[in-house]
């Protein structure tokens, strides 16, 4: 089995030397175009949106980007018979991830499907780990536990799951498949199930799926599966816990004189009053319009972050107005009158 290399730069349409700002800009533009909410071809848009998100996830994180760049350089070589590290086994399924315990010849292999990430991402960039009581043989492991027929609980398995903000808002159901090959018995078992992602699944939150981790040994209980929520980047919103942030572009006169603007939230638009003298970067809070917080019905807040944009192309009339303003204005941001 092999995994196709993903050209994340091509997906975002940026050169390899693109700056972080270029990547963000390219992502936003594409994400807006392909966001399932706005695109006409819903199914096609969704897979494209996930792909764009995945590229952004890797290229916007300096550490992951560096890893990706060095991986790209080695890819040909790896393809020609030198499998990248961690490559092993022959579980044979079409999608997912696998990993094995290092230093453990009795390890269990895991293979994920349905997380919303590509095989390539799963293999190299998903921060997933597996921990618990690995199946014997590890360094420093209690010999009494690894020997014989004593019942032992299976390891916990952890993996990332990509959740769009709309899904985090309303909840969703995801089919997940977890394929495990027990290296000791050679048997491959696939566990397929659906997991309800409840509304309010915040970024980084681990959703515990009881009993879906590694099977126990000698009659021990199975480990648990932890799905770590990764919010898909959204062109218009970002999140911090249950709070949602939205950058609002304003014209200089709107910020200075105040304005009433229509602002898009995750559930409908709201009319907002921008008070006169609103400074760039100011956060205006709308209570209770963020993500749900548990079952209480309580919700996080919605923050509008003011981004004053300046006109760059001026007509002669506009230029005249700005020049007039310069003459009459008492505003001196550097503290003294301009010379």
């Amino acid at each position: 089995m092999s995994v196709d290399f993903k050209d994340y730069y091509a997906i975002l349409g940026v050169p390899r030397e693109a700056s972080a700002a270029d990547i963000k800009k390219a992502f936003r533009k594409l994400a807006r175009e392909h966001h399932p909410d706005v695109a006409k071809d819903k199914v096609g848009a969704e897979s494209r949106f996930k792909e764009i998100n995945e590229a952004h996830e890797v290229l916007s994180d300096p550490e992951k980007r560096q890893k990706y760049d060095s991986l790209g350089a080695r890819w040909q070589e790896a393809d020609a018979g030198m499998p990248p590290p961690g490559w092993g086994g022959n579980a044979g399924a079409a999608q997912g991830r696998r990993y094995e315990w290092s230093g453990d010849d009795q390890g269990t292999e895991f293979h994920f499907g349905g997380t919303g990430f590509s095989d390539f991402f799963e293999q190299y960039f998903s921060g997933g780990t597996s921990y618990g009581h690995p199946g014997g043989g590890g360094k420093g492991f209690d010999p009494h536990e690894s020997a014989g027929t004593r019942a032992r609980r299976g390891s916990d398995v952890e993996g990332d799951i990509l959740v769009t903000l709309e899904e985090a808002m309303h909840g969703t159901t995801r089919p997940i498949s977890l394929q495990m090959r027990n290296a000791r018995t050679g048997a491959v078992e696939t566990h397929s199930f659906q997991v309800r992602i409840p509304p309010g699944a915040t970024d980084g939150r681990r959703i515990r799926v009881p009993g879906q981790g590694e099977p126990g040994r000698n009659g021990g209980a199975a480990g648990d599966l932890y799905l770590r929520v990764r919010h898909a980047a959204h062109p218009d919103f970002s999140t911090q816990a249950a709070d949602v942030y939205h950058d609002l572009a304003l014209a200089p006169w709107e910020a200075v004189l105040g304005a009433e603007v229509l602002v898009k939230t995750l559930d409908g638009s709201i009319k907002m009053r921008i008070p006169p003298g609103t400074e760039n970067g100011k956060q205006l809070r709308v209570r209770g319009r963020g993500l749900p917080k548990g079952k209480t019905g309580e919700r996080g807040d919605f923050f509008v972050v003011v981004e004053v944009e300046l006109p760059t192309e001026l007509t002669p009339e506009e230029k005249e107005q700005w020049e007039k303003l310069r003459l009459v204005s008492r505003f001196h941001p550097r503290g003294s009158a301009p010379t």
Partner: peptide, 18 residues
């Protein structure tokens, strides 16, 4: 997922479990 198969078991985790 093959649609002729019986529906997959649905697991509903409780985020507020204590």
């Amino acid at each position: 997922m093959n649609e002729s198969h019986p529906p997959l078991p649905l697991i509903e985790p409780d985020l507020d479990a204590r």
